[in-house]
Amino acid sequence: MEITLDRFSFHYAPSQQDVVSGITMGIPKGSCCAVLGPTGAGKTTLLLAISGALAAHYSSGVGEGEIAIGPKVFRPMPDKILFPEVGLALQESHLMISGLHETVRGEVGFSLENIGTDTKVKEEKIVLAMENVGILHLAERNPFMLSGGELQRVVLAALLAVQPAVLLLDEPSNSLDAEATAMLVRILRGLHKNTTVVFSDHQLDLAILVADRFLVLQDGEMVFFGEKKPFLKNLEQFKGFLPVDQWSKVIPQLSRKHAPHIRLLSRLLEIR
């Protein structure tokens, strides 16, 4: 589903300052958008707003503008959680664990159960989702005994299992190891055609590998929104609040070199 924000602003209490302010952007269906910015820039607030959780849980908050998801237009934002069409994984994974199941398998199936999935189909979907994020070996473990990175993958599997049309991920690569991050890249690249993805991050690696739209926030204001090429061209501009140093060294070289494997690499990364 397409996501459009029109001059969307929000603050948590009537007397407070805007946490996000005047955000206007359009993410086409099947697109993957990275929301980048430092701590406190408003990334989480924006994801909560699209999911419907912001209006549902922060009743003293004040919003303006509008958010459209697919054919539905919400002014200023969805007032109830839009699950299972829209799925959000919170940054603190341990909060997402319902505690109603003793095993990872059960926990992954929790959301499916909530939307009334038939038992047999459910079991298949659970296994598929666990396989997809590489946690089959954890299936019978107690979710509360897992490490931070493992827990994050359980939450991702649970979300992927319901196949939401809009997938919102709040800092999904935070405590993932190298393999799990590679897996996340593969999953997000594989999703593209059917699912619209919006994820937040304060690093660039995942964004450059998977995103085709980039939103850069600072203090709630939109500093940049656009496609990959203009984003990479303006990289220097984000110095100071995004870790651009290494990438600004890599990108010019990648686009200059003519050796075939470098050209292939740049094409894979869609840098040229």
Binding site: A178, L254, A259, L265
Partner: peptide
């Protein structure tokens, strides 16, 4: 062992070898 160097470090090394 599931450990890799950061993407940019690897890319820079690749470019270095190439030049």
């Amino acid at each position: 062992y599931g450990v890799t160097l950061p993407l940019t470090t690897r890319l820079l090394r690749l470019l270095e070898i190439d030049s």
